[in-house]
Design a protein around this nucleic acid. Structure first.
Lengths: 212, 212
DNA sequence: TGTACATCAGTGAACGCGCGTTCACTGATGTAC
DNA sequence: TGTACATCAGTGAACGCGCGTTCACTGATGTAC
């Protein structure tokens, strides 16, 4: 089910692209919002899977490279599916509120990033920065992330959330045209963003710690 | 000129809120897109001015506090003008391409952040990190930022752009509902994001450098 | 193998609605003499 | 001070369009005997 056409993404538009008359869709979706939900869930899963596959292509022992791979995959997906991306991460659709069960597929991409960080911390013997740990106490909803990122200090989980929004913020700005006139090389710029992100959430590397 | 109503923001909607019949607007704007442009320019200026004022309320000598003030102002503006915010930073309006002269008002907010960073570097005797300086060479369009941020190393200008998108990325995620279920205290979370941003772009503080 | 019938995917016409845009108009305000 | 006329802000009806949704329908496919 391929879809194009920017928001408000129309039922008739979707039908048109499926080569079918608009009323035919009512056999499958009782209402426009249900169609929208299905498209959103599909898109989240597509993106999530794409990021997962990219991450799996890099060995677990190289978290920084893995983070780059995942982040680049997200960006690549966004650029080749700009309408879906806007649907997921752009302005919310006016009358529409996503039902509860879209949360899980939505979390899938975030989880890819989260588990790269978690793996890295499990492998290292690093400990949390105590200052950070105290300033970042109780910022997150408990239930959500401690299952997904076991063995990771709370401050790092908080920073991971930051990194998550940083990556998507950067992609959105690029896609929505806000870098026009200021960023010349968007590829390299994105690489540096991810690198800075990695510095924030990955445990200090072995070689560096030996130096201390 | 107050406006509500999410995108695609309609001419008739705007007219309705001005208590005027839709065709009356054609006396002032030849077409819907011109109306849209006017609204966008207005909104950029409103946001820009709001951020400027907030920054000016903190003395130039305290760049970190100033950055917090400006960033918080941006966030506050976004939350009290969600539709305008979505118009500026959400999904691009389908058929619409912003004309060239919207670039200047659009840059106004970014300039607030940029000049806080520039002031801080002019006051300090810090120098650029050479590693950063070499990895971040030639990433930006030259003309734009070296006028606005004189005396600031290129790597720091690049990082400032990053910080800019980070702040807006965070605000967008919050406003568009992506933190639901993961961030509990959005205020504090945002504060920490700005703090990390400040660490990236502000020169190392006097006290810290004395320690080295 | 052949007929009878249920199931089901998709059709096409129609509805009421809000949209952007046009056009001839009304009526108040300002200026000239 | 009073009349004549231009200017100008806004009106209201109308247009063609795409939208979401409904409804009775067609025709192919699958199952029962």
């Amino acid at each position: 089910m391929a879809e194009k056409g920017a928001p408000g993404l129309s039922l008739r538009e979707v039908a048109r692209e499926m080569g079918v008359v608009s009323s035919a869709l009512y056999r499958y979706f009782p209402t426009r919002d249900d169609l929208l939900t299905a498209l959103i869930v599909d898109a989240y899963n597509d993106l999530g899977e794409f990021a997962e596959r990219a991450a799996l292509r890099v060995p677990r022992e190289e978290p920084r490279r893995r983070l780059h791979a995942a982040a680049s995959a997200i960006r690549k997906w966004a650029k080749s599916n700009p309408n879906e991306y806007a649907l997921l991460y752009g302005s919310p659709v006016p009358g529409y509120e996503a039902p509860q069960f879209t949360v899980e597929p939505a979390a899938r991409v975030a989880l890819v990033l989260g588990s790269i960080v978690a793996d890295a911390w499990q492998q290292s013997n690093s400990e949390a920065n105590d200052d950070d740990e105290s300033t970042m106490k109780g910022l997150l909803e408990t239930r959500n992330l401690d299952g997904a990122m076991p063995g990771v200090p709370e401050s790092v989980r908080t920073l991971s959330l930051m990194v998550w929004s940083q990556i998507f913020g950067c992609i959105s700005f690029e896609l929505f045209g806000h870098y026009k006139g200021s960023v010349r090389n968007a590829n390299r710029f994105f690489g540096i963003v991810v690198d800075e992100a990695a510095n924030l959430v990955l445990p200090p590397s072995e070689s560096l710690r030996r130096g201390v």
